[in-house]
Amino acid sequence: MDFPGLINYWIVIILMMVGFYIVIAQGNLIKKIIGLNIFQVSVFIFYITVGKVSDGSAPIMAAGIDTYSNPLPHVLILTAIVVGVATTALGLAMIVRIRTAYNSIESDEIERAEILEDDK
């Protein structure tokens, strides 16, 4: 196997797993959102690396260049980044709201508070 080979996919997968671990193992809600962001970025990198062509240039027409990288993944990811920020904003708004209701942003404390409320 020659050098770049499949290494881009492995980097993406490792990053993705870091994000995944943060989402499922961390109790702090803000950290969970950041983990989700890391996961997202790894997917973006996956798309962009799929669209990369060796010796290609950025997909902007210019004289003397005839190899371009694939513009389609770029467009899709452009859309996805903006949508990702919209979902992040919504999640953060929920966190602010949860904090006013339970006075905490740790998921286990919120669970405890709910059990206490049920007991009353």
Binding site: V41, F44, I48, T49, G51, K52, G56, S57, A58, P59, I60, Y68, S69, P73, H74, I77, L78, I81, V82
Partner: peptide
């Protein structure tokens, strides 16, 4: 580096 300049702007 991966030629996606527009995506880099947005990111």
């Amino acid at each position: 580096v991966l030629d996606a300049v527009d995506v880099a702007f947005t990111e």
